Computed example of a mutant assay.
Amino acid sequence: MSDTEGDSAAEGNAAYGKKSFKRSKSHFSDRVTADGRDGWPVEAGRYRLVVSRACPWASRAVISRRLLGLEEALPMAITDPIQDDRSWRFTLDPGGLDPVLGIRYLAEAYEAREPGHPGGVSVPAVVDVPSGRLVTNDYQQLTLDLATEWRDLHREGAPDLYPEALRDEIDEVAAGVYEDVNNGVYRAGFATGQKEYAAACEGVFGRLELLSQRLARRRYLVGDTITEADIRLFTTLVRFDAVYHGHFKCNRHKLTEDQVLWAYARDLYQTPGFGDTVDFDHIKRHYYQVHEGINPTRIVPLGPELSGWLTSHGREELGGRPFGDGSPPGPVPEGEEVPPAGRP
């Protein structure tokens, strides 16, 4: 996994056994843009977004796509949360084949792009449907491009997730969230040295304390609407008690024990486009069954209790407009609903 690359269990397991966890650099960082300057122009229906609902990096793209109304323009494939030695696979689809790409493993799209490529096979990934080739796995840039380069294909009333006037502040906040929270939980979880684990864990909770203080007086991280910064923090918070608290030993306290962050996370979860993309079943089974270096028994815990995600949060009192001058997304498209096993 890398600074610009999503989840790859093989690399995560390989990292276990080293004292500290470090992400490698992304190998495929092409961009799909309005002017097609990398050779990949924005075009409705041309590309397929491959994700795992278990992966926090992929979940950013799933949430952004839904909030912006890009479901028809950018169709989505959902992989099995459990990987084998060839990584992400399409065993949730009939016959174990992605119905559009016609492949069993995401690795086949990587190989079509560059045979024998270095590095792991990660999600999110954008695949060019006509050629079957991987376009990009640069999850950091992907959601920014969905918000900006894909604007002509946004739904009517789509929010501005990366407003130009706030980009410097969003980038600054998101950088701290990434270093200490998004990636910090992994550095704590995969550390095999006490010193390295302690430093990562302290970084996680130090940053969470700062974020809690910031959010005590404002509904959203930057400005008065939902932005890219909120999406990036949410995907870690929603997994915190389910996997990071126990599995990654980030157990100074639970999310539910921080009054501000727990209310903030519930507020977002109950906002259309957030909670309706979260599959707790996929999340738990992936982390506990794939990371065998951390959990060799592969036992998936029964808890935590999830009903609290649907309780009142009271954050409306802080004001703010979730979608700015826009509107919430419509119903979840048929076939993309989270199964009952993954919901509170």
Results as ranks from 00 to 15, higher is better:
residue 180 D to M: 11
residue 275 G to N: 00
residue 174 A to E: 06
residue 59 S to V: 09
residue 135 V to T: 04
residue 44 A to C: 09
residue 189 G to K: 00
residue 140 Q to K: 15
residue 296 P to T: 12
residue 185 V to D: 04
residue 54 A to H: 03
residue 97 L to T: 12
residue 34 A to P: 12
residue 82 I to G: 00
residue 285 R to F: 08
residue 3 D to L: 10
residue 298 R to E: 09
residue 31 R to T: 13
residue 107 A to K: 13
residue 315 R to T: 11
residue 82 I to D: 02
residue 321 R to Y: 04
residue 146 L to D: 03
residue 126 V to C: 14
residue 335 G to W: 00
residue 310 L to P: 05
residue 27 H to T: 15
residue 256 T to E: 14
residue 159 P to I: 03
residue 101 L to G: 02
residue 117 H to T: 08
residue 12 G to F: 14
residue 161 L to S: 00
residue 249 K to H: 15
residue 265 A to V: 15
residue 196 E to L: 09
residue 139 Y to A: 05
residue 169 E to K: 12
residue 44 A to I: 11
residue 301 P to S: 06
residue 78 I to H: 05
residue 343 R to D: 08
residue 180 D to A: 14
residue 229 A to Y: 07
residue 226 I to G: 06
residue 242 A to G: 05
residue 97 L to Y: 12
residue 199 A to K: 11
residue 294 I to A: 10
residue 335 G to E: 11
residue 41 P to A: 05
residue 303 G to T: 07
residue 18 K to F: 12
residue 208 L to D: 06
residue 179 E to W: 11
residue 148 T to E: 14
residue 68 L to Y: 04
residue 3 D to G: 14
residue 176 G to V: 13
residue 212 S to L: 11
residue 237 L to C: 01
residue 245 H to W: 13
residue 261 L to I: 01
residue 221 L to I: 01
residue 219 R to T: 08
residue 263 A to S: 07
residue 10 A to R: 12
residue 51 V to A: 01
residue 2 S to V: 07
residue 261 L to D: 00
residue 239 R to W: 03
residue 288 Y to S: 07
residue 125 A to I: 04
residue 26 S to F: 02
residue 111 E to F: 08
residue 333 P to S: 02
residue 306 L to M: 11
residue 267 D to Q: 09
residue 79 T to A: 14
residue 254 K to N: 08
residue 300 V to N: 03
residue 52 S to R: 01
residue 266 R to I: 13
residue 317 E to Q: 15
residue 111 E to C: 06
residue 108 E to F: 05
residue 230 D to S: 06
residue 81 P to M: 03
residue 295 N to L: 08
residue 118 P to V: 03
residue 334 E to T: 15
